[in-house]
Design a protein around this nucleic acid. Sequence first.
DNA 1: TCAAATGGCGCC
DNA 2: AAAGGGCGCCATTTGA
Length: 618
Amino acid sequence: MLAAVTIDPDGATVAIFGDDGTELRPARALADLTDLAALEAESHPRWVFDATADDYPALLAAGVRVRRCHDIALAERILLGRAGRFGEPCRAAAVLARANGGPVPDDPEPHDALGASRRPEQPGLFEKERPAPGTPVTPAGLVTAYLDQQRRTPDSASGPGPAAAGVAVPAGALRLLIAAESGSALVAAEMTRRGLPWDAEIHESILTDALGPRPRPGQRPARMAALADEITEAFGFPVNPDSAIDLRDAFRRSGFDIDTTRAWVLREIDHPAVPPVLRYKDLARLYTANGWTWLADWVSDGRLVSEYLPGSVASGRWATRGGGGLQLPKSVRRAAIARPGHLLVVADAAQLEPRVLAAVSGDAGLAAVSAGADLYEGLAADGFGGDRRHAKLAMLGAMYGQTTGEAARLMATLRVRYPAAVGYVEAAARRGETGQVVRSVLGRACPPPSERWRRLVGGSGSGGDGAAGGDGSDGRGGFAGDDGVLGGGPDRSDGPVGGLAASGDGQSGAGDGLERRARQAARDRGRFTRNFVIQASAADWAAVWLTVLRLSLMDVPDAELVFFQHDELIVHVPAEHAPRVSELVVRAADTARELVFPGSPVQTPVRPVAVQCYADAK
DNA sequence: TCAAATGGCGCC
DNA sequence: AAAGGGCGCCATTTGA
């Protein structure tokens, strides 16, 4: 049964449909959303939302929690992505317009779940006028869009992913992915509303201990000011450590020809200014990223409120907007404290990514090693002379594409012992280098290279033909001519430099420089696709884990998912329920493994711990 | 003068 | 001698 609901200023409109789209109960307007709770309790429908992040908060505010949903926008993003069409409108209005062959309206601006946005909300003066968003869809329109998406969702998600490597892909993989993405959206909406319990007093004491008392506006904290003086004294002339350029020039004047002041570069330098500079950077980071201003902006009523955004990263990982919820440094986690009578059940999936590699590549040897609790320990015993550090370095090098140095040497061992696993990531890298796309285990596609990338790499003679690959992947539309400017579009799939201009080192010129840049761009993209097959498959697993867990937690009184970070989550729960929640967390991980990697011997263990304070979890 | 880019560093 | 995926955020710097 489907319950399609739209939210409007006066309340909501809801209609009930059978799974095949036959209308069971016509649309009716509700001023009081509380009525939806009865519908949920009686028939457990799958709620169809245009965008969960926009629509579900109103239900939550009325005290209505739902079990399952289908998020049109998130599903559309996945489906369009598989056709190489990233960045196109995803909302139901756009789906319907495409199905009818009409003009496709832009998506409306996403709702700001936190109310006051800190981002500039005015479009820039010179920004071009956006087309108006489409008229609001009705519940019937939502269901039409849903059925259209069902029709376009193949039962098996074959393609340039695990299936191509001869590894089993779960039946209905793409449907599972869309269900998990929708489930993640429910988790995110609830988590955004609830927030991570955060003790402002403890946080302030952390700040005071490290930085000194809170400075007056425009002043440096005392400890930072003292270090700045030390730095100036060590150089013998005034230096502003907040300015990377000033700092770099200061080291140059002192005889150290560095071109960046990154910490790992400075550590190699023997100069009296280095220790205070490193210490200063440390404190400055705490002060600017998680200092008093952060506390005032993002912590209220004892909760850290960050907006969680599933589906906003190409690999399927979540992002956050505001508060830096996914970058909480270890140094402040002491402030994450359970409320009285409660505990935090903290659980992370140990060494998830190498285990995922073992599963998607079907490498029997690596899978055998993955049976142990510490994968790297097993790896070390099996070919690295017991050296866990070397084993880990080699594995990370394989997954991230390190091609030089110690890691590259160690990878040779890996290649001999685990040929299927190494072959798998290298095949993914080759696809990337030749402009093709890759997919996660459940069928999420990576973005194709930009037009600019194709011109550079494809046109240079080396590399591939730029074929997009994948089913119906028609690239990004027409080749706009040889203008040599712009193009590219919104995707940032060409590598860490986001294109090429950034790597302009000195005399670029034509000919040789162009060749080099083309090779560089190809390698960058190879690393991206190499990592994508692992990172995105891990995100698949984690989305299923979250979705299954959320469903089972609905039967535990006052259990709240309050944090999620790629492969780690926190449930805030009355202390007496902590053991039960721990068990549910483990069970959900097992279910996720069975659903995402059916028949694979690979284990994806999680180890929940019940603590009062997040910092005590490790 | 303001927006966009850059440098740097935190998390996974 | 300097490497290597994904992100967000801040202060500084640059460019229009």
